[in-house]
Simulated scan of single mutants.
Amino acid sequence: MSLETADWRRRVFALYETVRAQEDPAQAHKVWQTGRDELLKTHAASPVEERATYDGPEIGAYRPELRFDVAIDTSVEPVRWEVPSATDGVIPFSRLGVVHLPEVGDLDVWWLESYGGGLFVPVKDALAGTRTYGGGRYLIDTVKGADLGGDFRAGRLVIDLNFAYNPSCAYSPRWTCPLAPKTNTVAVGLPVGELTPQL
């Protein structure tokens, strides 16, 4: 399973590299949707357990107004966030800053403090538990390749809510995932990105 997971991550890194190379964000979204769909349905390390009968995730229509190229506001108090894990012990994060998204709300930007480090931005919206995963979704997780770009040296991130995706624990209890904290919860509904199927 370790080599399968390594291959999954390699493919995710390659997918996001292709996404960042697209000039049109809507086209980049189509590339992402096709690539993620294939990985979830076919890859041996997919968190989807019943892949033979899985039709792929439902993805909301692209909304260009939900894409932001924003500065990270670092004028925040330092906060440590520790997430207990069934397999990896405690996963430590520290708050790097916050991004302000007009008409949406604020999201904390976290830095993974364990080996290798990485940026992490989850989001939980007003549709959580109905049309979106109850624990929130991920926007950026650079340690695993989910990176939409931005000028890091200038302290900027591309936050595109259309690329919100479910953590692995949304598919299987075998996985333990950091879920969006209160500071990454917004009061608006975000019917974009990866959705929860309507029953």
Results as ranks from 00 to 15, higher is better:
Pro92Leu: 05
Val104Trp: 15
Leu107Met: 12
Pro92Cys: 06
Ser94Asn: 12
Gly97Tyr: 15
Val104Met: 13
Ile91Met: 12
Thr87Cys: 02
Val99Glu: 00
Asp88Thr: 11
Phe93Asn: 04
Pro84Arg: 06
Trp110Asp: 06
Leu112Ile: 07
Gly89Leu: 13
Val104Ser: 10
Val99Lys: 01
Asp106Gly: 06
Val109Trp: 15
Leu112Gln: 09
Val83Lys: 01
Leu96His: 09
Ala86Cys: 07
Glu113Ser: 04
Gly105Phe: 01
Asp106Asn: 12
Asp88Ile: 03
Gly105Ile: 01
Ile91Cys: 07
His100Phe: 02
Gly89Ile: 12
Ser94Gly: 13
Trp111Glu: 08
Ser94Tyr: 15
Val83Gly: 02
Asp88Ala: 10
Asp106Glu: 15
Asp106Trp: 08
Val90Trp: 00
Ile91Val: 13
Gly89Pro: 04
Val98Thr: 14
Leu101Ser: 06
Thr87Gly: 03
Asp88Tyr: 10
Leu101Glu: 03
Arg95Cys: 02
His100Asp: 12
Gly97Val: 10
Trp111Ser: 04
Thr87Glu: 11
Leu107Ile: 11
Ala86Thr: 11
Ser85Leu: 05
Val98Pro: 04
His100Pro: 00
Ser85Met: 04
Asp108Ala: 14
Leu107Asn: 07
Val109Ser: 11
Val109Thr: 14
Gly105Asp: 00
Asp88Arg: 13
Val109Tyr: 15
Val109Gly: 08
Ser94Trp: 15
Phe93His: 08
Val90Lys: 07
Pro84Thr: 02
Gly97Trp: 11
Glu103Gly: 04
Trp110Ala: 11
Ser85His: 10
Glu103Phe: 10
Gly97Cys: 12
Asp108Cys: 05
Asp108Trp: 15
Val83Cys: 01
Pro102Glu: 08
Ser94Cys: 13
Ser94Val: 14
Thr87Val: 09
Val98Leu: 04
Gly89Arg: 09
